[in-house]
């Protein structure tokens, strides 16, 4: 085994990019859940964002427009969920799952003419002096704009939830919708806005996949990223900065296990008497996420308090 071929800087740069689609989808879902709504349709919204973004960028030649339409696509799908769960009071878990099924189908239909088409390139912003600084330049200044905006989004969501009045109201709605309602807050309207925001973020995450990460449109290309995003919200205990941590952790372990494989780690293990299949290394991102969650949840005094109390419950305006 030759671990010296693993370059920690490249590893970090790689994980930041790998985590970005997860980060967008997860931070959006966090806001939705903070308002007391559980939308399990993240995968469906992501893939609709991916196809809308890709189709728009290809037809118009503008990746920027692609991102905008990708976000809109995710938001529109989310509003279907919102209408169903907020006005027709359908069950959130089942509606979210149905939304995934529906979204995957819609995306495949819309995307048919775009299979095998190449998208316009998204330019990486090169900061002339900064990105040339050794180490720091690559670690901090070598990304595309969408990545920086993703981190800014986390900061903005944190600020909104913890430092602004509307953020407080949104959390109040998520904690106890009946109380919020009796205080005169429009519970349903607030939740609809949160749901649309969540959909737009998931759509952006999907568009990032189809326009930057891959970049290409193929059916099923999100390959379960929406589910991981859902898990990251839980992992983060509904705290914005921990979403960033969770996404980076998951992305990081994924990249690390690929690096270990490429550097001959499995051969080394075999030479010391542990013949391990590659499948076991592929499990590590999931196992590490569980283990870290267990470690940080074990503090019984603080954990789980943060889960919005009304999560997943329908609100009816009676009387």
């Amino acid at each position: 085994m030759d671990l010296s071929v693993i370059d920690p800087i490249s590893l970090f740069v790689g994980l930041v990019a790998a985590a970005t689609p997860l980060l967008y989808a997860a931070i959006g879902e966090l806001v939705v859940e903070k308002s007391g709504v559980l939308n399990l349709g993240v995968e469906g919204m992501m893939i609709v964002g991916a196809v809308c973004g890709f189709a728009t960028a290809v037809t118009t030649g503008s990746p920027l427009l692609g991102f905008v339409v990708g976000a809109m696509g995710g938001a529109v799908l989310a509003l279907v969920f919102g209408g169903m769960t907020q006005y027709l009071l359908s069950n959130q878990v089942a509606t979210g799952l149905a939304l995934t099924l529906f979204g995957l189908g819609v995306a495949a239909l819309v995307g048919q003419p775009f299979t095998g088409v190449k998208s316009p390139r998204v330019a990486v912003v090169h900061l002339p002096v900064l990105s040339d600084i050794p180490v720091i330049g690559r670690l901090v200044f070598s990304y595309d704009l969408v990545i920086y905006l993703g981190i800014a989004l986390v900061a903005a969501v944190w600020f909104f939830l913890n430092r602004t009045r509307p953020g407080l109201v949104l959390r109040a709605v998520g904690e106890n919708h009946d109380a919020a309602h009796s205080l005169g807050y429009p519970v349903i309207r607030i939740r609809m806005m949160a749901i649309a925001f969540g959909g737009a973020c998931a759509g952006l995450g999907g568009a990032y996949l189809s326009l930057v990460r891959v970049p290409q449109w193929t059916e099923g290309m999100t390959a379960g990223a929406g589910w991981i995003a859902l898990a990251i919200v839980v992992f983060a205990a509904w705290k914005p900065w921990r979403v960033l941590l969770g996404a980076w952790l998951f992305g990081g372990v994924t990249i690390l296990q690929l690096n270990l494989q490429a550097s001959g780690f499995l051969s080394w293990l075999q030479s010391v008497g542990i013949p391990l299949q590659a499948q076991y290394l592929s499990m590590t991102p999931y196992l590490v996420t569980i283990i870290v969650l267990v470690v940080i949840s074990a503090d019984r005094t603080r954990a789980s308090v943060n889960a919005p109390a009304s999560l997943g419950k329908s609100f009816t305006q009676t009387g």
Partner: peptide
């Protein structure tokens, strides 16, 4: 196409979940 079938299934589920409203309210 298989995609149209899953859209159709999604629609069916949406409608089935939506009419629940009428049984409860």
């Amino acid at each position: 196409p298989a995609a149209a079938i899953s859209v159709f299934q999604g629609l069916l589920l949406f409608f089935l979940l939506a009419v629940d409203l009428l049984t409860r309210y």
